[in-house]
């Protein structure tokens, strides 16, 4: 589910090619130095400047998501100071609307998807205080429906992605009491399936990305006991295919983005030891563009910012040396999350 946060890339989908069969890897520690940190930093900073190529234009409407992916990657790589904080914060704030919600870019309509990214970016910089917390949280809380579900914006599309976004955003803002958490949890549970996973609406098929949203929302609200951890854990660990990569649903191809969606779930339910971590590390490293930086969905495909983020975040979840730890539920560095919740 790379499309989970409105990723446009699936429009190029139909021409899948055979993925590489990759043999067993070496222990993770031997791989230190194989992650081209400097190149990835350079790549991310270059994407930020390249505003005129086709991909950047197509992505213009979700630039705030892009900012979150890029900046979080930089932070995990220990290079967040390579960007001008004030410039980013001021641009983020220009994406906010009167209603409190954020658009994906200046001039684009407000939506939950970008509101969470805005909050996460500000959290990275420890700049939550520039927000009118009351206003943003009222916008999010106002999108809860009677059945506990959340709409993405005023037009009413309902999806458990938005449940996650609402719960994660409000938790970061310490405003969870603005919504009915009990019905929100009930709605998520009504989307639980035969395989222990979750879909976007009741009856919808389980998908690794949707599992992240639902398991994440349940984690943040302290409700993970509702998850059959063994059943879901088995489904998730069976996402690992022979190449070491993870797919998002049974009988599908592996993709680096699932290193995030699947791994984060496995960690939240304490079943990550059920997969072969070293093989997955090797798969991700093999998806790097070692010359120009960036990570792609599969080896030798074209790189992009979100796969770079998912790859680096995945390696962080795999305890790759030299990376900052990322929190599997809030999708922010652990130190940021601990700062928000522990130091009060």
């Amino acid at each position: 589910m790379c499309t989970i946060f409105n990723m446009f890339t699936r429009m190029f989908l139909p021409d899948f090619h055979e993925f590489h069969q990759i043999a067993y890897g070496r222990p993770i520690n031997d791989r230190m130095g194989e992650l081209k940190i400097e190149k990835h930093v350079k790549y991310i900073l270059s994407v930020e400047k390249r505003k005129d190529d086709f991909v950047s234009v197509v992505m213009e409407h979700l630039r705030l998501n892009g900012a979150y992916w890029g900046l979080t990657t930089l932070d995990i790589l220990g290079k967040l100071d390579a960007v001008d904080q004030d410039e980013v914060v001021s641009w983020v704030m220009q994406c906010q609307h009167e209603c409190g919600g954020f658009g994906g870019n200046i001039g684009h309509d407000p939506h939950m998807l970008y509101t969470l990214s805005a909050i996460q970016v500000l959290a990275l910089f420890d700049k939550i205080e520039v927000l009118d917390i009351e206003k943003v949280s009222n916008y999010i809380a106002g999108l809860q429906n009677d059945d506990g579900s959340f709409s993405g914006d005023m037009w009413g599309e309902v999806d458990t992605r938005f449940s996650y976004i609402a719960i994660c955003s409000l938790a970061i803002l310490h405003q969870l009491d603005k919504i009915n958490v009990e019905t929100a949890v009930k709605y998520i549970l009504s989307c639980q399936n035969l395989d222990g996973g979750f879909g976007c609406t009741p009856g919808a098929e389980s998908h690794a990305g949707q599992n992240f949203c639902c398991v994440g929302a349940l984690a943040i609200t302290g409700s993970l006991h509702h998850v059959d951890k063994d059943l879901l854990g088995w489904w998730l660990c069976e996402r690992q295919v022979k190449s070491g990569g993870l797919n998002g649903r049974p009988e599908k191809l592996p993709d680096v983005c699932y290193s995030w969606w699947v791994l984060s779930c496995l960690i939240m339910i304490d079943r990550v030891h059920w997969i072969d971590k070293e093989k997955l590390v090797k798969f991700i490293l093999d998806c790097q563009d070692k010359e120009n930086g960036g990570i792609s969905d599969r080896p030798d495909d074209a790189v992009d910012v979100f796969h770079t983020y998912f790859g680096v975040a995945g390696l962080s979840l795999l305890e790759y040396p030299g990376l900052k730890a990322i929190d599997p539920a809030y999708a922010l560095p652990v130190e940021v999350v601990d700062r928000i919740f522990v130091s009060k």
Partner: peptide, 16 residues
């Protein structure tokens, strides 16, 4: 370890 797999299965401020 840098990753705590029990972080969301224990009582904490992160899980409210």
């Amino acid at each position: 370890h840098t990753v705590d797999t029990r972080r969301y299965l224990c009582s904490s401020p992160m899980t409210h």
